[in-house]
Design a protein around this nucleic acid. Structure first.
Lengths: 189, 189
DNA sequence: GTCTATACCGGGATAGAC
DNA sequence: GTCTATCCCGGTATAGAC
C-alpha cells in the first residue's frame, strides 16, 4: 500500500473520504494527512479539489461497473443476472460501510454546478439502464418498446429507491424487499 | 414580507437557501445578508446552525404534508388520491426550482451524524408510506399484509426514484413515466 | 517532485455598546 | 433584541527551498 505512487494514494484516500464523509465535508488537509503526502504534492497531480472529484467519480464508475459484471458473470443471462444486480448491492450493503449510492450523494451535494460531475452521474445511471434493458430483452423477445422502457424504469427506480431507504434506515431490509418485488415483476413477463 | 419578525425572516431565508444550495454550501453570512438582519440576532433566535437546520426540516415536513393533503383533498380516496401524489410532485417540479427531495438531499449531505435531522427524514418517508398504504386499503379491502407492504414499497420507491432521476436529468419526464407506471400497477389490483 | 511555510479567504460563533 | 466589531479556526491554493 505504501509503494504505489503518490498520485494513486491520493486518489484512493480521497475516494474513501469523499464517499464516507461527503465531498464538501472532506478537506484537503485531511486527505493529505491520511495519504501521508504534502499539500503541494497533491496540487502537483490534481490542479484543484474539483479535479480530484472528477477523477474519483470516473474511476468509481468504471470500477463499480466491472465489479457488477464480475459478480453476475457466472449467472445466466436474463432473470438471473437481473436478480444478481440486487444481490450484488445487498452484499455491498452488508460488508462495506454503505452510505448510499455514491453518485446520487454527489449529485445532491452539488446543487449548483459542476457539469463534469453531473456527466459522470448520468453516465452511471445510463449504464445501469442499459444493463437492465439488455437483460429484459433476453427474457422476452421481441419486447415492445414502450413496455421495455417502463419495466426498465420500474426496476431502476425500485433499485435506487431501496438504496436510499436502506441508507436512511441503516438496514438492508428495503433492498431485500426490493429484490423480492423485482422477482415478482419478472415472473409476470 | 418585511414586517413578520426577525426569526421568521431568518427561517424563511435559510429554508430557501438550504434547499436550493444545500446545507453545507450555505453560510451563515449569506443567510443574514439576504434576511437583512445582523449575525448576533440570528444567534439570539437559534443557538447554532444545526438548530436552524432542524427547524427548517420540521417546518418543511409539516408544510409539505399540508400542501399534499390540500392538493388531493378534492380527489376521491383510493386510486385518485394516489395518482394525485404523483401529480402534486409533477406540478412541483415544473413551477419551483426543483432540486430533488429536500429530505433526501439533507440525508446525503450529512453522512456522519445529526440524529435530529435523520429523525425528520425518517418521519417524512413514514408519512408518505402511511398515506400510500391508507389509499391502497381503500382500493382493496381486505388487503393481505405482505402484498400491501410490497405494493407500498413499490409505489414509494417509484416515487422517490423518479424524483431523483428528474433532478439529475433536469426533466419532469421520469416523474411522468412513474405516474403512468403507477397507474398500470393500480389497475391490476 | 516533494517538502515547509505561508497567503488569503470565509466559516461559525461571541463580546459589548446601544 | 439588535447592532458593529472581532475572534479563532479551517478551507483552498501557492511560493520557494531542497
Amino acid at each position: 500500500m505504501k509503494e504505489q505512487g503518490a498520485k494513486e494514494r491520493i486518489l484512493q484516500t480521497a475516494s474513501e473520504l469523499f464517499y464516507q464523509q461527503g465531498y464538501l465535508a472532506t478537506g484537503i488537509n485531511q486527505i493529505i494527512e491520511e495519504a501521508g503526502i504534502a499539500k503541494a504534492s497533491l496540487y502537483q497531480h490534481f490542479p484543484s479539489k474539483e479535479a480530484l472529484l472528477t477523477a474519483y467519480l470516473l474511476r468509481t464508475r468504471l470500477s463499480r461497473h466491472e465489479e457488477r459484471m464480475a459478480f453476475v458473470q457466472h449467472l445466466a443471462p436474463g432473470k438471473e443476472k437481473l436478480m444478481g444486480l440486487y444481490e450484488y448491492r445487498l452484499q455491498h450493503m452488508q460488508t462495506n460501510n454503505f452510505k448510499g449510492c455514491a453518485f446520487t450523494r454527489i449529485a445532491y451535494e452539488l446543487p449548483g454546478l459542476n457539469e463534469d460531475a453531473l456527466t459522470q452521474v448520468r453516465a452511471h445511471t445510463d449504464m445501469l439502464k442499459s444493463f437492465i434493458a439488455e437483460q429484459l430483452q433476453v427474457i422476452k423477445n421481441p419486447f415492445p418498446a414502450e413496455e421495455l422502457t417502463e419495466m426498465t424504469d420500474m426496476l431502476l427506480n425500485l433499485y435506487e429507491g431501496a438504496g436510499l431507504q436502506g441508507y436512511i434506515r441503516k438496514s438492508a431490509q428495503p433492498m431485500e424487499d426490493a429484490r423480492k418485488i423485482a422477482l415478482k415483476l419478472l415472473t409476470t413477463l
